[in-house]
Amino acid sequence: MNKPVILVVEDDRPISKLITTTLETQGYKYLEASTGEMTIMEAVSRQPDLMILDLGLPDMDGVEIIRKVRSWSNLPIIVVSARSEDRDKIEALDAGADDYLTKPFSVEELLARLRVSLRRIQFDRDKLQKDASSFNNGNLRIDYAAGVVYLGGEEIHLTPSEYKLLCLLAKNVGKVLTHNYILHEIWGSHPYDVPALRVFMATLRKKIESGSSQKLIQTHIGIGYRMLQVSEDV
């Protein structure tokens, strides 16, 4: 893919300068915004490939920006915020953010999170060019048409709930999904709760990671889960 354009949304000038200088040294192109109004305008008119977003802007809360952008775009959004409480992270992720990094942060971690999101962009683009009836990630393969899952070429048995969970994670590979989002998508109003979800996720992980060195599902304690994108030769 061409070098991505990254929209940096930050009203603290020293932090904005740190982020943009880091991006520049890595060869990334970037745009800047310091208010919610500027952010929406840039996102609509310039169509960046990814957004790095501070939540505490002077004219608009960052969560509101996420909701506005999500009403018309799947633009990947990495939140960089001083808000460190789990409820703040969950609110941002539920609104549609792809990742959440707490200040103060290291530039190495920011670049790592950036690479994950950019790989997801490329992964999504590649999927559009492939047969949409299947999903491949490392030695995991889901045959959507047949409703069958393979690990290293061997078929594995999943319960209906485990299969739904796996498909939901696969269709959002690289993105953190909150407990509430997963519960709503899989069971709707069914009275399953977070402890029950943890049990289902534990059994799913055991089946798809058992006997393999590849780690497919990452736990974000108190927040949710993410399917990791792994190399094809794992």
Rank of each mutant, 00 (worst) to 15 (best):
M201F: 09
T20V: 14
A170V: 05
V230W: 06
E85C: 00
P48V: 08
I52S: 13
S84R: 07
F135N: 02
S161N: 12
H179I: 05
L111T: 07
P76G: 02
D11M: 01
G211D: 10
R87C: 06
A196E: 14
L93K: 02
E24A: 14
M1I: 04
D86V: 11
H220A: 07
R115S: 07
Y181V: 08
M201D: 06
D59G: 14
D233F: 08
A97H: 01
S81T: 13
K130C: 09
T22M: 10
R46I: 00
Q26P: 00
D99R: 10
T22C: 11
V230N: 10
D54C: 06
E91H: 12
E42W: 01
E24V: 01
V107C: 14
K207G: 11
M1L: 05
S213K: 13
S231G: 11
L158D: 09
R113H: 12
P48Y: 09
G27D: 03
E209M: 09
A43G: 06
E37H: 03
V63F: 03
M51I: 15
D193G: 09
T159N: 13
Y28L: 10
A112P: 00
M38Q: 15
E85L: 08
G27A: 04
L31S: 02
L204W: 05
G224T: 04
L216R: 07
R226G: 01
V230Y: 01
Y30A: 02
A146F: 07
S134Y: 13
Y100T: 04
V107R: 10
I77H: 04
M227R: 03
I156P: 07
P58Q: 05
K215W: 11
L118I: 14
L55D: 11
Q47L: 10
D61L: 04
V9F: 06
L101M: 14
V116F: 04
I15D: 02
L75Y: 03
G62V: 06
A95F: 05
D233R: 11
P104T: 08
G188R: 14
K130H: 13
G152I: 15
E85G: 02
L114H: 08
I6S: 01
E10H: 08
D131H: 13
V194I: 15
K171M: 02
I217N: 07
S84W: 00
P104L: 09
M38E: 15
I52V: 15
Q26L: 03
D59C: 12
G211Y: 02
L151W: 04
Q229C: 03
P14H: 05
I208K: 01
P195D: 13
Q218G: 04
S213C: 06
M51D: 05
K29S: 08
T159S: 15
N139K: 12
D54H: 08
K29I: 01
I19H: 10
D99L: 10
V176R: 01
V148C: 10
D12P: 00
S231L: 10
L128E: 14
Q129S: 14
S34M: 05
L31H: 05
N136P: 00
L166P: 00
V199E: 05
K89R: 15
G211C: 11
A82Q: 02
E232S: 13
V230S: 13
D94M: 02
L111Y: 04
